[in-house]
Amino acid sequence: MSNKPLAPAIEGWFTMDEQPQLIGSQCCHCETYFFPAQNRYCRNPDCDSTEFREALLSRTGRLWSYTNACYKPPAPFVAAEPFVPYTIAAVELEHEQMTILGQVITGVDVSDLKVGMDMELVLETLHETEEDIKVTWKWRPMAAAITGGNAQ
């Protein structure tokens, strides 16, 4: 690992804490959550609110489904050379009643996963630039047997 500073891959979408959280928004009237944050109009058909507050989303949820990427995606994805396949998860947040996609931490394979497993949010490298290391949220299985890779 290099000594470059860590920077969020997407500014303002998650906290850079030890226990990171996604930064969404919540309608002040009907309490619907939005990720990414939505601050202009509420998409609940029964609500015409224009007032929203920032909402830090639950760090843990249940695995809705999972897959992997065996081939290098096109830009703007920045792939390591040689390309290393990675795992992807969709995780249901119980309190927010929504499902959020993300990569799974390095070292966890689809064979380690099962729908319904408990997952938690961590930060890990997405790619490096000249100046810094871009980190993003990733999902990690909470089962002790599955440790995965280099989560920050």
Binding site: E11, P36, S65, T67, A69, P73, P74, F77
Partner: peptide
């Protein structure tokens, strides 16, 4: 261009087959 969901998902490594595969895997497990 993080305001474009299509840009975001490609940047994070999520392509079209990702979605089809998520649905398929869910069928297997359920």
């Amino acid at each position: 261009r993080p305001e474009d969901p299509d840009w975001v998902r490609f940047y994070l490594g999520i392509t079209n087959p990702t979605y089809f595969a998520l649905y398929a895997r869910r069928r297997m497990d359920l």
